[in-house]
Design a protein around this nucleic acid. Sequence first.
DNA 1: TTGGTTTACGGAATCCGTAACGATA
DNA 2: TATCGTTACGGATTCCGTAAACCAA
Lengths: 151, 151
Amino acid sequence: MRLLKSNDTIATIAKTYHTKLMPIELRWLRSFVFVAEEMHFSRAARKLNLAQPALTTQIRQLEHAVGAPLFERTNRMGGLTAAGRALLPEAKSIVERSGSLCRIVERAVKGETGHLRLGIIPPAMTTHVAECVRRFSQEYPGVEVSMRQGD
Amino acid sequence: MRLLKSNDTIATIAKTYHTKLMPIELRWLRSFVFVAEEMHFSRAARKLNLAQPALTTQIRQLEHAVGAPLFERTNRMGGLTAAGRALLPEAKSIVERSGSLCRIVERAVKGETGHLRLGIIPPAMTTHVAECVRRFSQEYPGVEVSMRQGD
DNA sequence: TTGGTTTACGGAATCCGTAACGATA
DNA sequence: TATCGTTACGGATTCCGTAAACCAA
């Protein structure tokens, strides 16, 4: 918890202590990933086409939203906290997934969507088949797959 | 593409045709999931604690961002388009993941984080073990797992 | 006419950049 | 002192709710 200084304004105090359930923003996660990878606010800000203060604000908002500091920092960048290390892979995954949504829709519009019906005879029903199906439906989320174990 | 009407204002036209690469917002995905599950704008808006017009706006913004309409609609709700059906599972997954970020951080702060070192002897190195490790590291993202195949 | 969705618009909240500050090497 | 990160603040954009319009059943 941050200690108040004598010159803190009402707005600052309110912003720091007013707890309202803030939904997480993708922008914050994206910025967090960049800072974590660069380990440098200024460089990350440049890569994000953003001014440093805006970046600081975003990181602070994310920290407030998840309820824990993400970077060890005195005045220089110190490194990730345990919370930061736990958050990083998930954040990266979410950012990447959200970035691929346009492509998913594009494929669906181009027609790579529909229904794939598979009939499997027992001897061929291996985990290898299951893995193939899993990878296929991950590659083509627009295609609904249904399997029937038959004669 | 929507046809212009004689009483469209400049602002409306600009909003409709001005193409700028808009990053996707989690709020839009959340709203989309609710509407897709309810198949009803009004009910979804109530569940989201939102007025219908705001919900319409969000869906329209998402449609614009991904570049395709997501609902078949004349005046009533008509159902999901191919693009909508393709988007729904991914959107749901992203929303759920982003919602669990707080819990991930919470666990990391409470100490369920660190390093798990496993030594495996060859006969036990099965896909079942791999699956267990995968599920463990998904359950405890804060715990770094390293495996060594030894004597 | 009624119910459901979209458009119009004004007030409030948010976001970002510039400038100034603080602190550490 | 120089560099990196934070705070302050003002302008512009965005967001949401109310009111009105639109259209099909």
